[in-house]
Computed example of a mutant assay.
Amino acid sequence: MTLDPKILLTIKNLPLLAKTVVDGFMNGFNKSTVKGPGLEFSQYRSYQPGDDLRWMDWRMYARSDRYYIRESEVETSISVKFLVDASASMNHNDGTISKIDYARYLTASLAYLANSQGDAVGLALFNDGGLQALDSRYDPQHLQRLYYQLEQLKPAGSFTGPGHYKELFSGRQRRELLVFVTDMYEAGNEISHLLNTLSALRHEVIVFHLMGEDELNFDFKGYSSLQDMETGEIIAINTQTKKQYQEKLAAHLSRLKKEMLEKHITYRMLSTAEPLDKALRDFLVQRNKGY
C-alpha cells in the first residue's frame, strides 16, 4: 500500500503516521531481504565462542552435527543519523505539501523503520544558522524525542550551520549511516562544505534532494515574479524564462549527480508529490551496504 503525500497531511499524529507508512511499505516488500528479529535470517555462519546461544539453529545442528548461528539484525545493527535542512527555503509549498512537511514525514518514517531494524537513531536539525542535535540511541523513548523535535520544527534563516562539522561527526567508534534531507539550496557552498566533510570522514551518506512539482515543471501560472525565501531577492519570470529554466535545471541536476558520485555519496532526487516508498527502499539498500 502506498500513501499519497496529500493523504499524509490528514494524519496529525507523527508516530502514527510513521508506523502507517512503514507498515504499508513492509506489507508489499519482500521481507526475506530484510534482517531483523522476527524476520527471516540473512545467512548462517559457524558458531564462535561468546556468540549468543539464542541465535543457535538447533535444526541445522540436528542435520549436520555442527553448530550454526543465524545472522540477524542483533549482530548487524548500526547507527543512523538523520540530518534535516530546516532553512527558510524548506517552507516552499507547491500547492499540495510543503518541503518541510515532506521532510518531516520522510524522516519520521525512516527513523521508525531503522528503529524497528534494531538501529540506533539520531537527529541533526540545521535551522536558522544553528544546529540542534540528538545523539544516536536505540531506545523507544529516544525515538519519541526525535518525533517531538520534528513536530516542533519551523524552518527559518539560511543554511549556514555551525561550521565545525568535523568535530560533530567524527570521533565515534564506528561509521554512521547519515541520511541528509534537503532542498540543496545554498547561497554559497555551505551544503557542499558539509558533504565534503562527511565524505572525508568516510561515513555512508545518502542525500534525499526534495523538489516541488512546480519547481520541476516550472508551473507558476498567474505569477509574474518569484521571491527567494532566504535572500528576499525578486526575479521576474515569463514564458521565455521557462525554457531557459528547464535547461538550467537539467544541467544543475546532472552536475549534482556527478559531484555526489565523485564524493561516493548516494544521491536521490524526490518530488514532494511522490509516495515515500521509493525513499524507504533506497534507505534499506544503503542501510545494508557495507555493514
Results as ranks from 00 to 15, higher is better:
121 V>I: 15
124 A>R: 01
125 L>P: 06
125 L>Y: 08
126 F>R: 04
127 N>R: 08
127 N>G: 04
127 N>E: 11
127 N>T: 13
128 D>C: 07
128 D>E: 10
128 D>K: 08
129 G>D: 08
130 G>A: 15
131 L>I: 14
131 L>D: 05
132 Q>A: 13
133 A>R: 11
135 D>Q: 12
135 D>E: 14
139 D>V: 13
139 D>C: 09
140 P>S: 14
141 Q>L: 14
143 L>G: 06
143 L>R: 06
144 Q>A: 13
144 Q>N: 08
145 R>K: 12
147 Y>M: 07
149 Q>A: 12
149 Q>E: 11
151 E>S: 05
151 E>L: 05
152 Q>E: 08
152 Q>W: 03
153 L>C: 09
155 P>C: 10
155 P>E: 07
156 A>V: 04
157 G>M: 12
158 S>P: 02
160 T>S: 04
160 T>C: 01
160 T>G: 01
161 G>Y: 01
163 G>T: 04
163 G>E: 05
163 G>H: 03
164 H>F: 13
166 K>G: 05
167 E>P: 03
168 L>A: 12
169 F>C: 00
170 S>I: 10
170 S>G: 10
170 S>V: 09
171 G>F: 10
172 R>M: 12
173 Q>C: 10
174 R>W: 03
174 R>E: 06
176 E>K: 00
178 L>S: 04
180 F>Y: 11
182 T>M: 05
182 T>C: 06
183 D>C: 03
184 M>Q: 01
186 E>A: 12
186 E>G: 04
186 E>T: 09
187 A>C: 09
187 A>D: 09
188 G>S: 12
190 E>M: 04
190 E>S: 10
192 S>Y: 04
192 S>A: 12
194 L>K: 00
195 L>H: 00
200 A>F: 07
200 A>H: 06
204 E>M: 12
206 I>N: 03
206 I>T: 10
206 I>W: 03
206 I>G: 02
206 I>M: 07
208 F>L: 14
208 F>R: 11
209 H>Y: 08
209 H>P: 06
212 G>Y: 07
212 G>Q: 13
213 E>P: 02
